[in-house]
Design a protein around this nucleic acid. Structure first.
Length: 407
RNA sequence: CGGAGUGUAGCGCAGAGGUAGCGCGCGCCGUUCGGGACGGCGAGGUCGGCGGUUCAAAUCCGCCCACUCCGACCA
């Protein structure tokens, strides 16, 4: 991609009133644009980042047997009435009426919709377990949208739903999803913690949240400094500084935190309310056990910026960077040659071919945060300067060495 | 929904009763060219909206709207 054609241009100043880091940097670098409080456009590079996050998620979920679908986002009232959530989740649902005065909800989650779909196609224990997921917009009537893309009223989410013939099978899958989530966030580059928590309007049981520790987070988590034990403040009943209840060795500390994912077990409560049964191997009608599992994908992008930036801009991990390489072409440089070679190799490269000063190009490169920077100029001659965004080391490589490194 | 702050050019801001300003960005010309270069010329505004006070309102008063932050709530 030629940077001279990239939409939009970067901004020198952060938008008025923006305080959170992700808000300031994502807007300045041109990854997102705010339409109103809590509603954002994903600009080309922001969309690329979210696409990469989505791809990592898909690969991990496919490994545990989940299949991708896409469910509708506008739902009729009657389906939500079956579980009583039309009224129970009233504060959080956006509701609307059509020309014939029929009531609809905009999707804030899909348990009912998934079960309605599944009961039309699942009749036998032989059809279980079943796990389906989709990436879609979620609408939530937040009392207060805030913190850049971290809390929107409309945001992108991956939600996965599974049904099982037994609690044991649900439990087993639940922990498989937890493992998949660990892999996903580890692949992106996060130091992620699995935290015990309550379920909000979703369930009364214990759930688990995927938390990324960050000062800008709005969650508060207590954790063991030796093992993987951790609890959200909302259910925490011990004392900070005390001994870990799990390993009996570590000390309990605390941190502000951003919730990037969560997993829930609903048991048979929803399938009972929705009168969804299948036939077991003995011919008896049974209710399937439901689990649901979410990852906020736009929030994940925002959380990354919160934990990985410096005073000059964002520092993407290679896995979710919008481009693999930022090629900076200065006067006397031979950008075109290496650009063509990289494109041919299938390397995603952002080529700064703009007619502007070197200082502006470096400043923009720092702001945008692509991990690998290649500079070509009169000074580098036949070679290319290779620099990582997160370190000061510089190497001078010829074309072949660059191509080998990027293969 | 309670509390606080802010709305003036695309973006960031100054102006506090008397002709609408600055920086950046944008367009044209020229000089520059390894850390957001410089000079010249130029375009761009119902000062968030509605109502009121006044000879006169961006400026004073009232109501409303929007955004940001704190709180309650929440992926």
């Amino acid at each position: 991609m030629r940077q001279s054609e990239l939409f939009p241009k970067t901004l020198k100043e952060a938008p008025k009133g923006a305080e959170s880091v992700n808000h300031k940097l994502l807007v300045r670098a041109g990854f997102v644009d705010q339409m109103m409080a809590g509603s954002w456009t994903l600009m080309p590079m922001g969309k690329k980042v979210v696409n990469k996050i989505n791809k990592i998620i898909s690969e991990e979920l496919n490994k545990i047997g989940a299949q991708e679908i896409l469910m509708p986002l506008m739902h009729p009232k009657n389906i939500w009435n079956e579980t009583g959530r039309w009224d129970k989740a009233d504060e959080i649902m956006y509701k609307l009426t059509d020309a014939r005065k029929r009531d609809f909800a905009l999707s804030f989650t899909h348990e009912e919709i998934f079960l309605d779909l599944a009961r039309k196609h699942v009749f036998s224990y032989q059809d279980l377990p079943l796990a389906l997921y989709h990436f879609s917009t979620k609408f939530r009537n937040e009392l207060r949208a805030k913190s850049g893309v971290l809390r929107g009223r409309e945001f992108m989410m991956k939600d996965l739903y599974s049904i099982h013939a037994s609690q044991d099978d649900l439990d087993e899958y639940y922990w498989k999803v937890a493992e998949a989530y660990k892999n996903i966030f580890a692949c992106i580059g996060f130091d992620m913690h699995v935290v015990e928590a309550g379920g909000g309007v979703f369930t009364e049981g214990i759930t688990h949240e995927m938390q990324v520790f960050a000062d800008s987070g709005e969650d508060f988590v207590y954790y063991c400094d030796k093992c993987d034990w951790a609890q959200n403040k909302e259910i925490f009943k011990l004392k900070e500084g005390g001994v870990c209840p799990k390993c009996k060795e570590g000390i309990i500390g605390s941190s502000k935190s951003i919730e990037v994912g969560n997993i829930f077990r609903f048991g048979t409560s929803y399938s009972e309310k929705m009168n969804f049964t299948y036939t077991d191997e003995n011919g008896y009608k049974k209710y399937p056990y439901l689990g649901s599992y979410g990852i906020g994908t736009t929030r994940t992008m925002g959380a990354w910026v919160e934990v990985s930036h410096d005073e000059r801009g964002i520092i993407w991990s290679p896995e979710i960077s919008p481009f693999a390489v930022h090629l900076i072409d200065l006067p006397g440089g031979r950008g075109q040659a290496i650009y063509d070679s990289l494109i041919e190799l299938g390397v995603e490269v952002l080529w700064d071919d703009r007619q502007t000063g070197a200082g502006e190009k470096f400043a923009d490169a720092d702001l945008i945060g692509i991990p690998v920077r290649l500079v070509s100029s009169e000074k580098t001659g036949e070679k290319y300067e290779w620099k990582m965004r997160n370190s000061d080391g510089t190497e001078y490589l010829d074309l072949e060495q660059v191509l080998n490194k990027l293969k």
